[in-house]
């Protein structure tokens, strides 16, 4: 597949490199020959029908899923099966989930402070200062003392984004971050993500929000049956898709909006 022309003059530092990654669940092949390079500051949107392997792909990057073949490098680290490299990668990579996965027994503030204190060894005072700053950035500081169950879905997802940012990650992975939200809450989460993109965060987003893809993505990647089918800048992807499967998918998803 041809490398698309880089739109913005993105620095050439490679943040994530997946080469010939293959994954099976028993007999079922979930990922087939995945090759993907993400440079620093790039925003990638991954889309495709359900079961096409998009979530599996990004979950391999921080080793929530293992893979059988190929190589994944994050920053300078080659991701192996050992706790040391997995831990090194997870400290650099933040993740936001479809169902938020906030810790329900902790306040919003505690949710944001736990990981920096436990895995980075940051002091309590410093963790709290960082947490408050980032909660302010996702515009939810006034809810810091509340518990997740007291917040709306959109608010919870913004807390989840702040929680991930508290680890000062170099890359952010978003796994369908707006799919579990009521329609009126989608925008506040997307706006937060757009703000993050504007600040130069390297991002990979699994999402069906095509407006977001148009506005933010450097490249849109279409997956089907565990393989990357098409990869193009948004203009080209939406107006001139090369593959039949892409056209069919776009037809289905865009007719819904």
């Amino acid at each position: 597949m041809n490398q698309p022309a880089v739109q913005n003059p993105a620095p050439a530092v490679t943040m994530i490199a997946m080469t010939h990654v293959e994954k099976w669940y028993g007999e079922f092949q979930a990922l087939t020959d995945i090759n993907l390079t993400v440079r620093k500051g790039e925003r990638i949107v991954l889309c495709g029908p359900s079961g096409s392997g998009k979530s599996t792909l990004i979950r391999c990057i921080n080793h929530l899923e293992s893979y059988q073949k190929g190589e994944i490098r994050v920053g300078g680290t080659r991701l192996g099966d050992d706790a040391k490299t997995i831990d090194a990668v997870r400290r650099e990579v933040g993740m936001v989930f479809q169902h938020f996965n906030l810790f329900p027994h902790m306040s919003v503030l505690e949710n944001c402070m736990l990981a920096p204190m436990r895995s980075l060894g940051v002091s309590k005072g410093e963790a709290e200062a960082t947490a408050r700053q980032l909660l302010g950035r996702v515009k939810i500081l006034e809810q810091a003392e509340k518990y997740p169950a007291q917040l709306s879905g959109g608010q919870q997802q913004r807390v989840a984004i702040a929680r991930a940012l508290c680890m000062k990650p170099k890359v952010m992975l978003f796994d369908e971050p707006t799919s579990a939200l009521d329609p009126e809450m989608v925008k506040e989460v997307l706006d937060t993500m757009i703000g993050l993109a504007d600040e130069g965060m390297t991002m990979i987003c699994v999402t069906h929000e095509m407006g977001f893809a148009r506005q933010v993505a450097n490249r849109v990647i279409f997956m089907a049956s565990g393989a990357i089918v098409e990869e193009a800048p948004p203009e080209e992807f939406f107006h001139n898709p090369r593959h039949e499967r892409t056209r069919k998918f776009l037809g289905e998803i865009l007719s819904k909006h």
Partner: peptide, 30 residues
């Protein structure tokens, strides 16, 4: 305890002891 809790804790690079002590067991005991 929902699986997402473990996944979120892993994604935050919490180690096994912290995942159990800080995240899973407090919820499981309840």
């Amino acid at each position: 305890v929902p699986k997402g809790q473990t996944e979120a804790a892993k994604a935050l690079s919490l180690n096994y002891v912290s995942r159990m002590r800080d995240v899973i067991l407090p919820q499981a005991i309840r």
